[in-house]
C-alpha cells in the first residue's frame, strides 16, 4: 500500500518529464501529427482500437477502409471534434488529446467536411473568408472602429484563393442553388484561406464526376506541394488516394490493418480481402 502510494507521484513525475522529451524527439524528427494507443467507443461499440501512427510534416497520407471501419471517427479525433477515451494525440509539439477543434484550427489545422457546408447568410467570398486565421479584425473594437480595414484585406486574399480554386466567377452569387462540386471547391478554398499546416480532407471526391475530381485533386496537390502542407485524406476512392497520397493507412473494424506506401498497402492481402476485393 505504501509502495503504491509513493509510486503514484513518481509516475506523474515521469509522465511530466517524458512528455517534453517525447515532444522534443517528435520535433527533431519533423513529426507533424501523432496518435498513440487511441481508442474511441460510443455506447458500447468500439469505433477505434489502439490506433497509433505518426505523420511527418509535409507528408501526404490517405486513410482507407470500408463503411464502418472507423475512418470518419478517426477524422473527428484528428480534427478534435471527438476526444479519445484512451490514448494520446500530439499536434504542434503539444499534447492535443484534450484540446478542442478550435485550438487545432488556431494552430493551423483545417478540415474539409464530407458534406460541404455553405453558410447561406453569407456570399461566396464571405464563406471563404470564414476560414481566415483569427486576426486583429475579429474583435468588437476593431469591427466597430475600423470595420472595413481588415475586412478589405481578407476579402482580397479570399478572392485570390477563389481564383486559385476556380471559383472566382461566382464572386457574389448566393449559394443556395450552387452545384455540389462548386460547394466542395468553396469548402476547400475556405480551408486554404487559413494557410493550413495540416489539411484534413474527409471524402473529397464524393458525388463529383471524373473531371471535377481531377480538377479538385490538382488544386490540392499544387497547394500542398507549394507550401509543404501535411495532407490527411479519408476516402473510399482508391484512385483519389493514389493521386493525392504517398502513404496509406488501411482500417478495418476500428483497427489498422496496413500502413505504408500507397501501392504496397493496396497490394496487401488483408486489404484486398477485407476492403478492395480484387488486386489493384
Amino acid at each position: 500500500m505504501e509502495t503504491a502510494m509513493s509510486d503514484e507521484p513518481l509516475d506523474k513525475a515521469v509522465e511530466l518529464v517524458e512528455t517534453p522529451r517525447e515532444t522534443q524527439e517528435q520535433e527533431r524528427r519533423g513529426i507533424g501529427f501523432a496518435l498513440k494507443g487511441v481508442e474511441v467507443s460510443y455506447s458500447g461499440v468500439q469505433a477505434l482500437k489502439n490506433i497509433s501512427f505518426e505523420i511527418s510534416s509535409g507528408e501526404r497520407v490517405g486513410i482507407i477502409g470500408n463503411n464502418g471501419a472507423g475512418k470518419s471517427t478517426l477524422c473527428d479525433v484528428i480534427s478534435g471534434l471527438i476526444k479519445p477515451n484512451v490514448g494520446k494525440v500530439t499536434y504542434a509539439q503539444a499534447d492535443a488529446t484534450r484540446k478542442s477543434a478550435i485550438w487545432r484550427a488556431q494552430k493551423g489545422m483545417r478540415r474539409v467536411f464530407q458534406h460541404p457546408v455553405y453558410f447561406e447568410d453569407l456570399s461566396i467570398v464571405e464563406n471563404v473568408m470564414i476560414g481566415s486565421p483569427p486576426s486583429r479584425g475579429d474583435g468588437i473594437v476593431s469591427s466597430l472602429l475600423f470595420p472595413r480595414l481588415f475586412y478589405k484585406e481578407q476579402r482580397e486574399t479570399a478572392i485570390r484563393i477563389m481564383e486559385y480554386c476556380n471559383i472566382a466567377e461566382n464572386d457574389n452569387h448566393s449559394g443556395v442553388n450552387l452545384p455540389y462540386a462548386t460547394k466542395k471547391r468553396i469548402e476547400l478554398a475556405r480551408a486554404l484561406m487559413g494557410n493550413p499546416k495540416i489539411l484534413v480532407l474527409d471524402e473529397p471526391a464524393a458525388a463529383m464526376d471524373e473531371e471535377e475530381r481531377a480538377q479538385y485533386c490538382q488544386v490540392v496537390i499544387d497547394y500542398v506541394e507549394t507550401f509543404s502542407t501535411t495532407l490527411i485524406v479519408v476516402e473510399h476512392d482508391v484512385e483519389v488516394i493514389k493521386t493525392l497520397c504517398k502513404r496509406a493507412i488501411a482500417l478495418d473494424a476500428g483497427e489498422i490493418i496496413a500502413d505504408g506506401e500507397v501501392i504496397p498497402v493496396l497490394r496487401n492481402d488483408k486489404v484486398i480481402d477485407l476492403y478492395l476485393g480484387k488486386r489493384v
Binding site: 477543434a101 478550435i102 478540415r111 457546408v117 473568408m129 466597430l144 475586412y151
Partner: peptide, 29 residues
C-alpha cells in the same frame, strides 16, 4: 445589420449560427 453583414466578426457570428460544428472547425469560438 452592418456588423453582421459587413464585418469579419459579424460573418463569424452568422456562420456559427448556421453550423456550429463547421464554424468551430474553422476556429470560431
Amino acid at each position: 445589420f452592418f456588423i453582421l453583414s459587413k464585418t469579419i466578426m459579424g460573418n463569424r457570428l452568422l456562420a456559427f449560427a448556421q453550423d456550429q460544428q463547421t464554424a468551430r472547425a474553422y476556429g470560431v469560438s
